[in-house]
Design a protein around this nucleic acid. Sequence first.
RNA 1: GCGCCCGUAGCUUAAUGGAUAGAGCGACGGCCUCCGGAGCCGUAGGCUGGAGGUUCGAAUCCUCUCGGGCGCACCA
Length: 548
Amino acid sequence: MRKQIEDFIKNSIISVFSIDPGQIEVEIPLREEHGDFSSPAPLKLASLLSQSPLELANKLREFISKSEFSKHFQEIKVAQPGFINFYLKKSFYFEVLKQIIEHDYYARLGIGNGKRVQVEFVSANPTGPLHIAHGRGAIVGDVTARILEYLGYEVQKEYYVNDTGGQIEKFAKSIEVRYDELTGKKVEFPSDGYHGTYIIDLARNIMKSKSLDNTIDQERIDFLIDYGVGEMLKDHREVLSLLNVNHDNYFKEKYLVDSGLVDEVLTMLQKNGYLEEKDGAIWFKSTDLGDDKDRVLVKSDKSLTYFIKDIAYHYEKFVKREFDTVIDVWGADHHSHVTRIKNSLKSLNIDPDRFEVILIQLVRLISGGKEILMSKRSGEFITLRELIEEVGKDVARYIYLTRSSNSPLDFDLDLALKESMANPVFYIQYAYVRAGSILKQATIKGIRIRREDEVNYSLLSSKTELRLLRLLSLLQDEIVLTGMKRTPHRLATASRKLAEAFHEFYHLHKVIGESEELEQSRLHLVIATRTALDLLLSLMGITKVEEM
RNA sequence: GCGCCCGUAGCUUAAUGGAUAGAGCGACGGCCUCCGGAGCCGUAGGCUGGAGGUUCGAAUCCUCUCGGGCGCACCA
């Protein structure tokens, strides 16, 4: 509807003033008395035509009122200092209500037009357990993917596995030292090694099934990498599935080297004139693209930096797998990497706008009003697994989703464990349960729910009922906006608002036991609300409980 | 020093450049013969860190400034 109004205003302006106004804005006003839709177009137009915005608004209003299009509206008003406000006819709401019930109004949309989008998220180093910050990335990535899928994109959820490089060697080395300790050898634990107790567990498990004693060094390390990465990945996958996050593809960094992709990219960069050899290393001349320094791609010992592998990886996404858009979800500590990847895409003649990054700010875990800090002794954060065990998947998902990604998130354990409005996931699930329970009650009483064309919706006329109808009508627009702006946290707000409106409706109005006509129309409203909540919960990946 | 993010009610925070800045928690006061009270209704609480600027209009954009976080590797 909003898009239609936009187009309509635009065409009206062209007809009335014979100029092209460019992009027209139509917004959903915060205050209901400003209408269902509102456009400040006359204000913008005023400076273009140097006429008073109110006058322009009135002329436009007049033109629109005479048109066929105005039949959707109860009223079209001009407001100071030059807004045009549109008030939908109630019949429009009723039409939406009818559609929600009749044919799956909230079914997948066609906006994405089947374009291929990849969302890459979590991608934690397989050198330790997932911690609470990974959880936030997991949910933001997963929900973004779910929304885009709903909008009609073809979405792939990918996990990038960093299974090569210096950190991995260090990880293997750490297991080796723990193993040696267990066999009674006197060895010094490296200060830059991985200190977590899980390393000892890994070493212990190896000891149970295999002896490393007769292996030569490289063979040992290869085995330890293979085993360690395998175990960590198994753990990550398991924890993520506890959170209801399931990636479509695990992409191994090792493949980039083995398949020759890294060489392919180096050749291309050479050809495009972005390589330089200096101090025995190969550099990417990123200063040519505005970076403050050049970056090493191949170290002087001939080993590869993470950067060249990352370039090859993104090249692979766009050129080999031909994604139209790639969205990476990264921790904010990698922000400086964004421009570097965009620069590298430019140097490979790939449009950098096809690559987007959602940066996630820190997560702090709060308990008893105090931050739980990393344990100095074990070198471990609270793990994501522990968090899920503590608060449950639904609460974790919702809390991770509540804040905008570029705000730091305080995850308050005490609030998460409360079963009240402090913890809105219960509030929302409760609304869903209540709607279901009314319908169940209707069934028990033997009430037959009529078809849409046998119901007189105009009986839904109280302020509360209209508010609920309005939210239902605007929900699609809201989800589209949420998807296009990559701001999944808006779903959390939208569902809370809908639940709130429904709880209010529940308390103010009886459904069952009213006159038959009214009972039927309210039952339909309840069904539609439940459908909407169902959609929102699915998009957020939160369980739809039937009883609480 | 340079770069990115954040400063909104006591706390946690929302708001595609729009109209009177919304919520929840906490505080205070009401509501259960009634479809589930994990709920509903109400009251108090804000110069959106500060100063300039752009704009018809700024929490939002620009400059400066103060405070907090995170980056500035031949680590990932």
